[in-house]
Amino acid sequence: MGAVLQVRGLSKSFGGIVALRDVSLHAEEKEVLAIIGPNGSGKTTLLNVITGVYRPDAGGVWLNGEQLVGLTPAQICIKGVARTFQNIRLFKRLTVLDNVMIGQHHRFGAGLARVLLASRASRGEEAEFEVEARALLAKVGLAGLEDAAAQSLPYAKQRLLEIARALAAAPKALLLDEPAAGMNSEEIVHLEALVRSLREEGLTVIMIEHVMDLVREVADRVVVLNYGAKIAEGSFAEIEADPEVIEAYLGKGAGSCSA
């Protein structure tokens, strides 16, 4: 099994509230895994545990067989897991280009002395990464906005910038937390194309999403969470027909309605 990211038996509770209950899932290379579920079902908590923001009470997370639990968020990012945030957390007052180049941070290697002396190596590295950052911005569709302040971008473009910033870390697995929230249908089509092209490049994408059109279009597999537990897993068609999923979304007795 070629699982890039493997999650096994993950549990997490806050005080008395169980946010995750024995969740296991995996995502393979060149795969888009969508995680769906009603509000409060533990999706974002799952992302926070994977990226080391929270420590799980039980269970583990492996990236290419390497245990991530116990590492700091920064170390996990350096290992190859990058993410975006549900409520956009860009560095608002900095420029678009700077935001992306902050994503590249851990790949720089010049060190303080070379920076202070502006050595050839340091300047070369800086120029190289800047070219790459501009290319990334062009790829997500933000070319020409490099010098704008991040906070001046419209909402949908801020979401794209978050993706570019995460890609700048050169991750093996990319975690997107509701990337389509607040986007109009045209912008969602653009996002679809972007996610597809990332998959073609060999990236593993795990995506939390409420916008079912996007999930249907790009997800290879879908995992459904409800009250912190996994209740279903499979292709979008399978999930759509699953009575338990329908119940979770629409409540008891909804099974008779056409979903």
Partner: peptide
């Protein structure tokens, strides 16, 4: 203007996001 300066700016703006973006 270096990656170190940008990392400092990132910490100033949003420490959690900076940490998650791989900044020690």
């Amino acid at each position: 203007r270096s990656y170190i300066g940008r990392a400092l700016a990132a910490i100033r703006e949003d420490e959690t996001a900076a940490e998650v973006m791989g900044i020690n």
